[in-house]
Design a protein around this nucleic acid. Structure first.
Lengths: 223, 223
DNA sequence: TTTTGATAAAAAATCGATATTTGTTGACAT
DNA sequence: ATGTCAACAAATATCGATTTTTTATCAAAA
């Protein structure tokens, strides 16, 4: 069945490979927002059949990264300032909920994972490339929420996180996020979370999003 | 391309038909929670090819109504009490948000749609079958939120609504929901919404969910 | 000119067949 | 008896080709 060797050596289906690849291409803007996604074109680009491409696009539809047009194929989800701001607002609402639940369920094991993911993010900030940082950054943010014991909520938070990433890349080709000093903001969140202070952690997280949001709004104002 | 005549005569793709049919079958329990969904079996049952079935299942995966098992096909999402309660909790949180925004944006046009959808639901309660009532009931609840100007939020609310429906069918084969007197609860919500009293409307809506939740928890306790 | 309608090209959706994987059974050795 | 392994059966995943739909082109008519 044409097994694919995934980067780390794990074997995956062609559909999964196509899904991950297309997702990455959309998040980074390699496939531009609003762009028509032609099956044939993607088929050759990913060197796979039409069925896996089609299925991958269907899956991306649920992530709101791809839109399905009636009988006219697919396109990358359009970007707009309104969409960006909606994502920001919802992230604040949902992550506040998730973070408070997560902290309420705090365990030593969770704390350790949290500290670890923060360390890895700092390490990736220092010497990794952008993809490595992005991965570690998401891992940290999701680790904050991961203890919430609410799979659907976490799923939504993850989706919104990814939708937001796309706007980071749009705003500045994904480069200068690290140039702003986010390290202290991340530490504030981590410290409060580990301390078990839900309100402080939530405040710090919301502040982080508000500041980042303001920071990105200007470059995105012409959307 | 094998156009399908949808019930109301609108032409749709085979994929869309399969999606809607399978969704209905899962919501009503015709395809039981946790049940293995074999392509071949569904293919003959829906009288269509493997590709549309496969794509429809992929789409249902994003609705959390179907799970994809690594290389072993699909199954209907399992049901559990924890899942039911998570859905209830999230619905309260998200619909509270959406309803308040909706009311904050109130317009005469929205009010009219709201009243209309409520009337239609009452009418369907009186003389319609279960599917008609279910459709009208969802239309009313979504109409309450529809003015919120937050597409993603509305999407999530719609998803959670559907997930919850499945538990209604599970609890009582979907029959006795109307036997409880929900009419007055619906009227309380409607009145407060039309009056523009967001807090009262939200209280009424939350009460509606809490009561319904309690009502369903007992029959579902053996999940 | 603008509109209309037919025609041709491009693309999407679907089908049928094939290859690959998972699961199952039962003989054989321990 | 129990565990292992090969052969077989069932089901999934994928491909290649076909059908259908949409989009583009262009000539003829208003």
């Amino acid at each position: 069945m044409n097994l694919m060797q995934h980067s780390d050596g794990k074997e995956t289906s062609a559909t999964r490979t196509a899904y991950l690849t297309l997702r990455q291409m959309i998040l980074t803007g390699e496939l531009a927002a609003g762009e028509k996604l032609k099956i044939e074109q993607l088929r050759t680009r990913l060197d796979t059949g039409a069925s896996p491409v089609r299925e991958a696009l269907s899956l991306l539809t649920s992530d709101m990264l791809v839109e399905r047009l009636d009988q006219r194929g697919f396109r990358a989800a359009p970007a707009s300032l309104a969409n960006f701001q909606e994502i920001l607002t919802l992230r604040c609402a949902l992550e506040d909920m998730a973070l408070r639940q997560s902290i309420a369920n705090a365990t030593p094991d969770w704390e350790e994972k949290l500290v670890l993911s923060h360390h890895r993010m700092k390490r990736a900030t220092a010497d990794g490339g952008i993809p490595e940082f992005e991965e570690a950054h998401k891992a940290f943010h999701m680790a904050l929420l991961d203890n919430a014991d609410s799979p659907i909520l976490l799923r939504y938070c993850g989706q919104l996180y990814d939708l937001n990433i796309r706007y980071r890349y749009l705003a500045a080709a994904g480069t200068n996020y690290r140039k702003r000093n986010v390290a202290s903001e991340h530490e504030d969140i981590l410290d409060a979370a580990v301390r078990g202070d839900a309100s402080a952690a939530s405040d710090a997280l919301m502040n982080h999003y508000r500041v980042t949001g303001d920071y990105l709004t200007a470059p995105l104002s012409d959307l």
